[in-house]
Design a protein around this nucleic acid. Structure first.
Lengths: 240, 240
DNA sequence: GTCTATAGCTTGATAGAC
DNA sequence: GTCTATCAAGCTATAGAC
């Protein structure tokens, strides 16, 4: 040991002063979850490339190296974030429309009822599930519009649920052609993800008359708008 | 001139050997445009943070430093890309609906006619304007879904045109409430930008039955879907 | 206007002590 | 599991020759 190394102290250097700042009452798997939460928040706001591992680590209150320890590459972290809530979300939607179909007397199902059952879960999670779910909604909205991997990612996680919806819609609109149903759903999909993104655009456009965050109202409008749209597009003889 | 400067030649040093590789028949402002084209392409695919100045320069076939020479900071380049076609696009839409309103006899305007006039320009540019316009459409789609600056950016460039559309729709649906019109438009906006993004999602969902790129068909469906949606949502006594 | 060269940072990822 | 330390690579942006 050189003189320089020991400068200022004749004892060994003071041991690391315990863990620094951030209080970490780390329970089991809590670090992992806090990294996912931070990543979800940041990715939803700035996209995949707009976020650095270091920012995620800082917001989670953990060390940069830990992010790699838990998730490996950055892209794997993104996928883990996307996957975490997709299952909850979709299972709930499928359960809701299945329940509606089961509990409604034959011939009394309505488009409005079906769409309401299908759309309510994401709206409710976004409204009452805490900030994580709001971030997730925004992440889905951005991903749906992403030309690079949006189509593929959305299809992988969400299409099974949507196919089931379309199956049930076909019972309500028995004369509808397959193509009509898909194009109609496509219109609904755009409306849904834009709304869940809550970008604040509608607030500006309407001069404050409508609020993006008013998802209760948004859902009501969407059900009526889309139900009418489906009917118009799927009516026999309506297509060109 | 020092001896060193003249080393290897007793004449003046050979002049720069002409411009290297890339054939550049650079007309006036052509370099600038090629940078914009390259940036538009890349930004539309990977977003602002997913693109580097170096990639833009490489795709444009120019030097990295030139990008800064023409546009300054990276963000200014993005704005220049976004601005370039916004005016064309919007002026055309406003002209189209104004013309429709002017040339249609009093009381014979329809929602379908109005929406068709409004939606056709972006669809037509995307279909027939060349790759640049397709990239631009995808860029707008992504921006509309962007929580960080999407609401603000879209509002700045596109809201005046939309306000004019809503004004004219009010003539067709005179009993509609202001809020109903805005919420209805919000649903249409989501459908429109998702469709123009052509992410390929519909292709997968429908198992190839529908093609994202078939914008002619997409536009027809959208007009009918949205017109019915507006009517349902704006009908007197329809709201909650 | 176009190039070379580089300053000054930040990035994703890993090695290795504890 | 968590930290320190670091690497090689990449980035934006600018200075300055031509």
């Amino acid at each position: 040991m050189s003189i320089k190394d020991a400068a200022g102290s004749d004892e060994a250097r003071p041991a690391r002063r315990g863990r620094p700042p951030k209080a970490k009452a780390a329970g089991i798997g809590e670090t992992r979850e806090s990294i996912l939460d931070a990543a979800e928040d940041l990715f939803s706001k700035h996209g995949f490339y707009g976020v650095t591992i270091r920012e995620v680590a800082r917001e989670a209150g953990v060390d940069t190296a830990l992010v790699h320890y838990y998730f490996g590459a950055k892209r794997a972290l993104f996928d883990a974030v996307f996957l975490r809530r997709a299952e909850v979300w979709n299972n709930e939607r499928v359960d809701a429309i299945n329940r509606y179909a089961r509990e409604t007397p034959q011939g009394e199902m309505t488009l409005e009822g079906l769409l309401d059952a299908f759309l309510r879960p994401p709206f409710q999670w976004s409204l009452k599930g805490g900030p994580g779910w709001k971030h997730y909604s925004a992440l889905v909205a951005q991903t749906n519009a992403n030309p690079a991997f949006g189509g593929e990612t959305m299809a992988r996680y969400f299409d099974p649920a949507i196919r089931r919806l379309i199956e049930l819609i076909r019972q309500v609109l028995p004369d509808a052609r397959e193509v009509d149903l898909y194009w109609a759903y496509h219109n609904l999909s755009g409306a849904l993800t834009l709304t869940l993104g809550e970008t604040g655009r509608l607030d500006r456009l309407s001069g404050g008359l409508c609020r993006s965050g008013d998802l209760e109202t948004a859902g009501d409008y969407m059900v009526r708008f889309a139900a009418a749209g489906f009917r118009a597009v799927c009516a026999p003889g309506a297509s060109g």
